[in-house]
C-alpha cells in the first residue's frame, strides 16, 4: 500500500475492540459526490442465477438506479448511457464502468445503486447482462479490510456518456 502512495496505515481497523472513524470514502474529492451501494434483486441469488434463462428474462440488464432529482441535476435522462467512476481516497486510484440509468424515487438523492448479480462474462445467457458493481469497490486499507469494516462504501461520480 505504501508503494501505491498510502502514507497512513489504518492500524486502528485491526483492533480487538470495535472502533469508529469517519469513513475513508469521505476523503474523496467533492466531485465524487455520490455513495454507491449494490443490492440484491428479489429474482436472483448472488451472481449464480443470472444465467438461468427464465430469471434472466425477467431482469436481463444491469442498470444504475438514481434518484430522478439527482439525475436531472446531472443532465441524465431515463435510459441514458452513463459512466460510474469510483475513487480510492488513499491511493487516488479510479475505476469505471458503463451502464444505463434508470430514474427512480425510492433511492436517496445522495446515493446510487447497482444490482449485485451481473458481471458474468462467459456464460452465453448472462454475458450480455452488464458489468458488476464489484469492479468499483476497493479492497485493502481503508476500504474492505480483514475486519470487514467500511465494507463496500465508496464514493462515485456519475455522468452521461457523450
Amino acid at each position: 500500500m505504501q508503494g501505491m502512495g498510502v502514507d497512513q496505515t489504518y492500524y486502528q481497523d485491526y483492533t480487538a475492540f470495535p472502533s469508529w472513524r469517519t469513513p475513508t470514502k469521505d476523503q474523496s474529492p467533492s466531485d465524487y459526490d455520490l455513495t454507491l451501494i449494490s443490492y440484491k434483486r428479489i429474482e436472483f441469488k448472488q451472481s449464480r442465477s443470472t444465467f438461468f434463462p427464465l430469471l434472466n428474462e425477467l431482469v436481463p440488464k444491469q442498470r444504475l438506479l438514481i434518484n430522478s432529482a439527482t439525475a436531472a441535476a446531472k443532465g441524465i435522462g431515463e435510459g441514458d448511457s452513463v459512466y460510474v467512476e469510483s475513487h480510492n481516497a488513499l491511493t487516488g486510484e479510479t475505476r469505471s464502468i458503463q451502464t444505463v440509468a434508470q430514474l427512480v424515487e425510492f433511492v436517496r438523492p445522495d446515493t446510487v445503486v447497482l444490482h449485485h448479480h451481473y458481471g458474468l462474462w462467459v456464460h452465453p445467457v448472462a454475458r450480455e447482462s452488464g458489468p458488476t458493481p464489484n469492479a468499483l469497490f476497493f479492497t485493502g486499507d481503508g476500504y474492505v479490510t480483514n475486519t470487514a469494516d467500511q465494507s463496500f462504501h465508496v464514493n462515485v461520480k456519475v455522468g452521461k456518456v457523450v
Binding site: E57, L58, V59, P60, K61, R63, E78, G79, V100, Q102, V104, E105
Partner: peptide
C-alpha cells in the same frame, strides 16, 4: 406512478 420495469430489452 411510474413502472419500474420499463426497459426496451426487457420482455
Amino acid at each position: 406512478r411510474k413502472a419500474l420495469d420499463t426497459f426496451g430489452e426487457e420482455v
